[in-house]
Write a protein that binds this DNA or RNA. Sequence first.
DNA 1: ACCCAGGGTCATA
DNA 2: TATGACCATGGG
Length: 228
Amino acid sequence: MATTIALVTLYQRLYDAYGPQHWWPAETPFEVMVGAVLTQNTAWTNVEKAISNLQKADKMKLELMKKLTERRLARLIRPAGYFNVKARRLKNLCCWLSKQGGIEELSSWPSEELRTALLEVNGIGPETADDILLYAFERPVFVIDTYTRRLMKRLGLIEEEEKKYEVLRALFERALDPEPYLFNEYHALIVRHSKEKCSRESMTGRRVIPGSNMLIDCRHCKVELPFE
DNA sequence: ACCCAGGGTCATA
DNA sequence: TATGACCATGGG
């Protein structure tokens, strides 16, 4: 499959260019989960402020956060935006985690069941669930985000806005060995590359050159892939 | 003043 | 199934 070669090559290019990213930027699995909710459609710099507030208030712990009122929790996470919605989502997550007997208890669950259960928590969608599975539980689940969609589209690997999250996820998971480290770095590298070099604006001069290689050329960087 | 950022839910047709 | 409205702060 040509797509397989393209995705493997893309990883090599990104890894060579940027090196390991050491994700997720958090100290505990619980902090990963909190960050995954807070970063929904939100710049990470804003999430950092919210996380800092939670840590200073000593609330970056399941049982302590669970006890907070939504209003008080919302106050602490204000810099992350959507604070009322996210306070409710964090509480939903805390209640569910607590009901399952804590995070340790979940480590023995099969990935598929864990994913299904996470998706049943109101406020946890596909990407947030997969962030948690990969970065908190180290399961070989590939995370798809807007950066990934955009990059795949620019590389010509998908049509327009490939709607289905699961289709795109399957594309990566079929192409790659199910190694958590690989999935971890790959997603982090796509985010790093997209934020730093291939932002929306910097792609205005894009060219896709037919030939032996597909070539993305954004003023700042080049990513080459095997053709077709 | 505008655009956007590591989404997700809900109401409607 | 598929759009659209809504949530909201902070940096460019």
